[in-house]
Design a protein around this nucleic acid. Structure first.
Length: 810
DNA sequence: GATTTTACGTA
DNA sequence: CGTACGTAAAATCT
């Protein structure tokens, strides 16, 4: 049935979808099925009345197989069939008749039909001129059905709809259009710098953006905006060749340094730009007041935070990202202006959400993250070469043996080839991947777990263990055999805001991530996943030591306080400040767990291991099946053990329940350090498990980063910081300075925090050695003054996120 | 040939 | 059980 457009004549908003579906086809009305329900919900969230809006589609009849491409001549969906052209004319007539103030394009087909544009992902949220009816404006966003499929898009969509609601109040398409002087001659840019410096930009910050070429991140284009409305951009490199002569370069750097050193700066991803400016221009940007990436992370941890996205949310400007290929300097200048505009928006947003403390906390991490990236980590050549040789031999030997046994050449790094070999050619029992839900389809796997299982089923066949050994050695080699910098270093980029995105949106629990540095592209990239054995290639200089300071049982301590487990809290408080031998003898948490579970005084090694595994599993709400794999026992035995554990630790289940209760309102949790996270998963076990992990992990991460910043700010001149590893800090120092350094680390890392109405102080352990991989535990008491827990609390004060928040709300 | 997705391994 | 990232191979797109 043909579907008509519905809604009151002359409505301010006109929603245009793609094509009718099954329910629309049956009723002749648009958006009445599943997608219609989603639309209603989205409109409700955005405060828009469906009854007051016009709603229709581009195509007026249901396409065969629900495929919109049937209405196009070409695969790319750019040449409409005569039928579709006729429908578009109908839409045009409806728009002209009703004269809405804003047309909301739902999905890429509507976007194309109304504006002629492709690429919804880049254009959503931006107000565009309508091509179908010139003079009208279009705001594209996701199709409701796309939100059903891609849950992460729901929040951006609501923001788009709110923006559309604002635009429905007036008819004109009025951009705030910045003035950009692009490709400025260098003399003009230097005058601009002088001028900014002289007037200090009237006390306001400037925003800076650089474009770089790889490798080496040399600056090709640089721009500075003095407000959201004016920027100048200049070209410094054309290809490989500098645009400046030597004299110009000296003068340019002189004034640039003055401006960047003395004025307050706005940047998007400051850690990158200031590192490049430091490395290549020897300029140290001291006063970064706003990193829009960090502000966006603090305010909206679930959302994308690239400039194009932030522009669509915060600004009313023309899309500009498409200029990057055609006019780099104009693009760069617009980046500057729009970063400035986004910054002004984000200042208010940080304040509106009372997240000033969190913002300051993350901003303070920029200098140390930049320093660590530029400094890198030195590799001991001889050790590296020897280890590469050893592991390469294992790879070759296992491969040779396997080829002899199997009788043909197989690439064991290819899951597909391995599947064929094991399950087809050799006919071994197939192993399936663990499923998230029973409804998910079974999938084959040849992972380590499957190979171990096969090895236990068929103990006489040596190939499983050989394959495992082969793959392990291959993997190890990737951590050893890598390109080093000219001075034998590896570099990593520490990312304060994390960076990964999954089907549900961004996750960010406040821990740093580590990835390959594009400024200094040496090493295996991530330094937070180096296996212990490969750590041996990072050695201290002769006469120096590497010290590791890590929080003891950090996450378990936080869980103890959060769940109000009095016995556990007492254990942690009683054992605070003890030498490790005494702590392990009397206050071993896993031994005590086992003692209680099995009602025994003397605990065997196995019983301690069970206690350890089960605590970890229970803290994160693992099921008996996973536990049975870890403990190598039957599922029923694992179930029995879990029940026993929960019987002895009833607080844990209560705590999990309280987390669920806390989620009920708006799926938002707040950590003891004041960090917020909104969970986007649908209500259910997956959401719960993810949220149980949030508070402990995030608290430990924030605690460690506070310590790291303190250490760098207070002792950066004297302490050589090497690495950040989530709950540990590594430094290097001369042998005779070990004691002193341990004292400083203890001073920096002991940080009392109010958790669940009690003061939590996580204790610290030290290890010292000649390399990152070979370290021995030491007692700090041998080197440093001893303070009781109470003395530490009195000296340091207690961090109270709740207090900070409530006092800033008024 | 380029880009995206999947599988895997480590903290 | 969770979070994180990187790498290689496969799969898909152009």
């Amino acid at each position: 049935m043909k579907v008509k457009t519905v809604g009151p004549a002359n409505a301010k908003m006109f929603f245009v979808g793609e094509a009718p579906g099954k329910d629309e086809d049956l009723t002749g009305l648009p958006f009445v099925g599943y997608a219609g329900k989603t639309l209603n919900w989205l409109l409700g969230q955005a405060g828009i009345s469906r009854a007051e809006s016009l709603i229709g589609n581009v195509a007026r009849e249901r396409p065969a197989n629900n495929k919109i491409s049937t209405f196009f001549e070409d695969k790319q969906c750019t040449i409409p069939t005569p039928q579709l052209i006729a429908w578009m004319m109908e839409l045009k007539a409806e728009l002209e008749e009703n004269q809405p103030n804003v047309i909301v394009a739902l999905g890429s087909t509507a976007l194309w039909a109304l504006t002629g544009e492709k690429g919804l992902g880049k254009l959503r949220g931006y107000v565009l001129p309508c091509r179908l009816v010139p003079g009208m404006k279009v705001l594209p966003t996701y199709h409701p059905q796309a939100i059903n499929y891609e849950w992460k898009n729901f929040f951006p969509c609501i923001l788009d709809l709110k923006k559309a609601k604002y635009h429905s109040k007036f008819r004109e398409l009025k951009y705030s259009t910045p003035q950009v002087v692009d490709n400025a001659p260098i003399s003009g840019f230097i005058d601009y710098l002088k001028n900014i410096y002289e007037h200090k930009n009237d006390g306001k910050p400037i925003s800076v953006d650089i474009e770089t070429i790889q490798p080496g991140s040399h600056i090709s284009t640089m721009g500075i905006a003095i407000s959201p409305m004016f920027a100048m951009s200049t070209c410094l490199l054309k290809g490989k060749y500098p645009c400046l002569n030597e004299n110009e370069e000296v003068e340019f750097n002189y004034w640039l340094s003055k401006v960047l050193t003395e004025l307050p700066l706005i940047l998007q991803n400051a850690a990158y730009d200031i590192s490049v400016l430091n490395l290549n221009n020897h300029i140290w940007c001291k006063n970064v007041v706003m990193d829009t990436l960090i502000a966006a992370h603090v305010c909206w941890p679930e959302l994308p935070r690239d400039l194009g996205f932030l522009g669509s949310i915060c600004l009313d400007v023309e899309p500009w990202k498409h200029l990057s290929g055609t006019n780099n300097s104009l693009y760069n200048g617009l980046d500057c202006c729009n970063t400035y505009g986004i910054a002004e928006f984000m200042y208010k947003e940080v304040e509106r959400l009372s997240l000033q403390e969190n913002f300051k906390h993350e901003m303070s991490q920029i200098p140390v993250a930049s320093m660590l990236q530029l400094q890198g980590l030195e590799v001991h050549n001889e050790t590296q070469e020897q280890m590469i040789k050893d592991y390469k031999k294992i790879v070759a030997d296992t491969k040779k043996l396997l080829t002899e046994i199997i009788g043909k050449d197989v690439n064991f790094a290819s899951p597909k080839q391995l599947q064929k070999l094991l399950y087809v050619d050799l006919g071994f029992p197939v192993q399936h991947k663990r499923r998230k839900s029973k409804d998910d389809p079974l999938k084959l796997t040849t992972d380590a777990g499957a190979l171990k299982k096969l090895a236990s089923i068929l103990p006489d066949n040596p190939i499983f263990k050989l394959i495992l050994k082969h793959k392990k050695a291959l993997k190890m080699n990737s951590f050893l055999d890598m390109k080093l910098s000219p001075d034998n270093r590896v570099h990593t980029s520490y990312n304060i805001t994390g960076s990964s995105e999954d089907a549900l949106g961004r996750k960010s629990f406040g821990r740093w991530s580590s990835s390959g540095s594009i400024i200094l592209p040496f090493g295996s990239g991530n330094l937070q996943n180096i296996p212990p054995d490969a750590r041996k290639i990072y050695r201290a200089k002769p006469g120096w030591k590497i010290i590791q300071a890590d929080y003891i049982q950090a996450e378990a301590v936080v869980v103890g306080y959060l769940s109000g487990d009095q016995r556990l809290i007492k254990l942690f408080e009683d054992s605070f400040g003890l030498r490790s031998a005494e702590r392990k003898a009397k206050y071993d948490i896993h031994v005590i767990t086992a003692q209680n579970m099995f009602s025994v005084k003397e605990v065997t090694k196995e019983q301690r291991q069970i206690g350890k595994t089960i605590r970890h599993a229970a803290n994160y709400s693992a099921g008996p099946q996973v536990l049975s794999l870890q403990l190598n026992c039957t599922t029923s035995r694992a179930k029995q053990l879990m029940d026993l554990y929960y019987q002895i630790n009833p607080q844990l289940k209560l705590w999990h329940q309280s987390i669920q209760e806390e989620l009920r309102k708006d799926k938002t949790l707040v950590t003891p350090m004041g960090r917020r996270h909104r969970f986007l998963e649908r209500w259910g076990d997956e959401l719960f498990r993810s949220s149980y992990a949030f508070k402990p992990q995030s608290t430990v991460g924030d605690l460690l980063n506070s310590s790291l910043v303190y250490l760098y700010n207070e002792y950066g001149e004297t302490i050589d910081i090497l690495l950040q590893l989530h709950d540990a800090i590594y430094v290097t120092c001369q042998e005779e300075m070990v004691g002193n350094t341990i004292g400083i680390l203890r001073d920096s890392m002991l940080r009392p925090v109010l958790v669940n109405h009690r003061v939590m102080v996580i204790d610290i352990d030290f290890k010292v050695g000649d390399s990152w991989g070979e370290q021995d535990e030491v007692d700090w008491q041998d080197y440093s003054n001893s303070f009781t827990r109470q003395e530490v609390i009195d000296m340091k004060g207690v961090y109270n996120a709740e207090h900070g928040r409530s006092s800033s709300e008024h």
